[in-house]
Design a binder for these strands. Structure first.
Lengths: 224, 224
DNA sequence: TCATTAAATGAACGATTGTTCATTTTTTAG
DNA sequence: CTAAAAAATGAACAATCGTTCATTTAATGA
């Protein structure tokens, strides 16, 4: 026998994933050609197919790796050892920000290119995403049960908080005005207050009685 | 003279915009071909170029129309007639949700395809976007000045709130569990509390003293 | 009705797409 | 060193891309 396997192959595979990740994140999946990826890796176009059967497989590998890494990176200790919902939520916010700020390309890509996934692949990623969302929902549910938090709607609140947190990657820059730690504190404050139990005397403008007056939309949308 | 202009041309132009909007929002700018658009409009591919000089011009027209319509749709009355920051913020949240839920494709496209814009076009859209963000920042600034609101950072808080609100379009369905009005109320509540002045005795888990412990990231990112 | 021109056609352009494959190079086991 | 297979090459494939253009169709003012 000769050469049943090598380390070279795995190295090239990882370089393909790294180049694809960066290019996909920058220009979008559909806008990046296999030749662009090959050029960035420093290899011929045909060589890519020794490691991935199709372009779609590259995208799927990146997304699935990211989602599984995200899920396994979340420290189980915060889920089991702590029964205080506030502390769990604080830890979740800091974890989410740390992870997403450290891996902006993976996060951006996994959010932006969901529609580039073929149906079967989409289902897999979507399921992993729901697993992650469930972590936050469980925390909010616990907090409401313990009457430590006030949520009008667990699902909506979870979606709102996640959108708020993930949005950081769209403006955060490593050398920006604020450090990651400062941003963590700001967001912990925002999130904690957003689900805080309203105190007596708290002025929350409640004009819920108004029947949702429709906003008049100016514009040239004749096709409506 | 004969036929200096017609209504037919403008109609076709609008149908091109409508078809492109739907297709771009569904599959992404780069993944949609001019022939697909033409087929959806019910016209030959060459006919598109009687109304738009390039594919990029179609995208730019959609985005610019949307951003300008968004800005002009925001009722000036809430800015000038009301001096109460809380009422202004309430109105802003409801306006934003109403508008974005009514025009999900426009919102989704204008956010997702920014990178598909050529540099000059990007600058224009980006400037319009900042104008819109400024509306919220002004409200928060006013609220802080009046000591009605507490923001650790105006810019970050504005980005957080906008991300939270715009994220609605990624899960909202017209025939879903909640009506638009119910969602408005939930988000008004979330936003109001997130910038609420903390009351004495309010338990906001403040472990700001910890030196930002780094989350260990498992995974196969050998290139780091 | 006629002249004029906007609007639409559809073939064609060169460039690029994802992918294949015969061939060559490189690496490892024996 | 040699045999064998992994890995890379680079030309080639059919298909599709955005765009152009000579031509035809259709709508309008006079």
């Amino acid at each position: 026998m000769a050469r049943p396997s090598s380390i070279k192959g795995e190295q090239t595979r990882q370089r393909i994933l790294a180049s694809s990740l960066r290019l996909f994140a920058r220009s979008g999946y559909a806008a990046v050609s296999m030749r662009e990826i090959a050029l960035d890796v420093g290899v011929g176009a045909g060589a890519l197919y020794n490691h991935f059967t199709t372009k779609q497989h590259i995208l799927m590998a990146i997304m699935e790796d990211h989602m599984r890494a995200l899920l396994s990176a979340y420290p189980d200790s915060t889920k089991t050892n702590q029964s205080d919902a506030h502390i769990q939520l604080d830890a979740f916010v800091r974890f989410h920000i740390s992870y997403h700020v450290a891996l902006p390309d993976e996060v951006f890509l996994s959010y932006m290119e969901l529609r580039a996934l073929e149906p079967d692949n989409f289902k897999i990623i979507e399921a992993l995403r729901r697993n992650y969302e469930a972590i936050l929902k469980d925390i909010l549910t616990l907090g409401v049960q313990q009457k430590q938090m006030a949520c009008d709607d667990i699902h909506v609140s979870a979606m709102a908080i996640l959108a708020m947190l993930t949005g950081i990657t769209s403006w955060f820059r490593q050398q920006g005005r604020l450090t990651r730690h400062e941003i963590e504190n700001i967001y912990v404050s925002l999130v904690m207050r957003s689900v805080a139990v309203p105190m007596a005397g708290q002025t929350l403008a409640q004009n819920n009685e108004q029947p949702a007056k429709t906003i008049p939309i100016k514009g040239k949308k004749a096709h409506v």
